[in-house]
């Protein structure tokens, strides 16, 4: 019974908003705007349970109630806590330029996240060496186009014979062959999205309700 309430809401709102897209009046536009301005207020509280669950799991390590507790784990969990509360307290005070919050954002968060992603270069290089084989026709084709794009993207084609033709072909393929493939994929994805939206509205798709639905 309790689970029927959210399902009912999804159904009613879904149908109303599908219909609203086909009505062009000031009040239908108002209703669309209402949905947009309510959405952040409806969703903002989700950050509270999310933060609570994460901190609670680290709290268990901190207090050594973990399955196999070690001092190192406890110290590291402590680091997370200190970082969280420093950010929280300084941020609530001020987030203007020059504040501690802004400083930590610019000098810790940005450099470290971009470094983390940059490390993938090393893994790509390893993968290129180990896995990229011209063993079958399919993979060879993949490799030929990868090489083509890599050469022309970096201006290396200016140093090789017939480089100009490489570049022209690469540009042409990006605008035609590549477009065809990506478009077919997008159409497939869009049909999937439509189906999912309809399934959600009619309560067939219930994975958003969490386990056991």
């Amino acid at each position: 019974m309790q689970r029927n309430i959210p399902l009912f809401l999804v159904f009613i709102l879904g149908i109303i908003y599908v219909l609203l897209t086909f009505i062009e009046t000031s009040w239908s536009e108002g209703a669309v705007r209402l949905a947009s301005s309510w959405a952040p207020l409806l969703s903002m509280w989700a950050i509270v349970p999310a933060t609570y669950v994460t901190l609670a799991s680290y709290g268990r390590r901190l207090t050594k109630r973990d399955r196999n507790p070690t001092t190192q784990k406890a110290i590291l969990a402590g680091v997370t806590y200190v970082a969280f509360f420093t950010m929280l307290i300084s941020g609530l005070k001020s987030n203007a330029e020059g504040s501690l919050f802004d400083w930590m954002f610019r000098n810790i968060q940005i450099p470290v996240t971009s470094t983390m992603f940059s490390l993938l270069t090393f893994y790509i290089a390893s993968a290129a060496y180990r896995a990229f084989r011209v063993s079958r026709a399919h993979t060879s084709l993949l490799m030929v186009f990868a090489v083509l794009v890599m050469v022309t993207n970096t201006g290396m084609h200016t140093y090789i014979p017939f480089g100009q033709y490489w570049n022209e072909f690469s540009t042409w393929f990006l605008m035609t062959g590549n477009v065809a493939a990506k478009r077919a994929i997008l159409i497939g994805v869009a049909v999937g999205m439509l189906a999912t939206n309809i399934r959600i509205i009619f309560g067939i798709e219930r994975s958003w309700m969490g386990g056991g639905a």
């Binding site: 689970r3 309430i5 959210p6 399902l7 809401l9 999804v10 159904f11 009613i12 709102l13 879904g14 149908i15 109303i16 908003y17 599908v18 219909l19 609203l20 897209t21 086909f22 669309v32 949905a35 309510w38 959405a39 409806l42 969703s43 509280w45 989700a46 349970p49 869009a190 999205m193 439509l194 939206n197 309809i198 959600i200 509205i201 958003w208 309700m209 969490g210």
Partner: peptide, 21 residues
């Protein structure tokens, strides 16, 4: 907690249909 989620999901599933199409 599913109620606010249902509201957002319902409205945007509906709104998205025509635009995705």
């Amino acid at each position: 907690s599913l109620i606010p989620l249902a509201m957002v999901l319902g409205a945007f599933s509906g709104l998205g249909l025509e635009r995705i199409m």
